[in-house]
Nucleic acid binder design. Sequence first.
DNA 1: TTCCATTCGGGTAATTGGGGGA
DNA 2: GATGTCCCAATTACCCGAATGG
Lengths: 66, 66
Amino acid sequence: MTTSTGGRLLTPGEVASLFRVDPKTVTRWATAGRIGSIRTPGGHRRFREAEVNQLLAELTTDAERP
Amino acid sequence: MTTSTGGRLLTPGEVASLFRVDPKTVTRWATAGRIGSIRTPGGHRRFREAEVNQLLAELTTDAERP
DNA sequence: TTCCATTCGGGTAATTGGGGGA
DNA sequence: GATGTCCCAATTACCCGAATGG
């Protein structure tokens, strides 16, 4: 069962601060499937810290993907 | 067998940590009927771990692709 | 019994979601 | 093609005092 990573979750505002973008942009990333997200029963999104950090690392590494 | 779902019970604070929300928010979910809850004789709420985990799984959008 | 963190209630700010357009 | 900003409705977060749990 690898469904629950058990890692900490971040709010859209926290992720937006890390990337220095608007929270709406983070929402678009989630909608486009670029980043996994968990929804509360009320519809608000939460993001996995580990996944966010990995995405941040890829950006700062200037990694290129085909 | 048993009609009692003998799963572990979680406190509002524990459920709140799993979803990264305020314990009061979990209380609203219970009031709105979005999640089943048990009340102690004193009025405090308890939640079934199995139901919480299933809810987490349903609301999780995994985008992990190695 | 006392002690202390947690969870009741309510009420009021702050975020978030979704659509649309610059 | 991807972001930021404006609108409004819904959801969530923080405030308090009082009660419960272990």
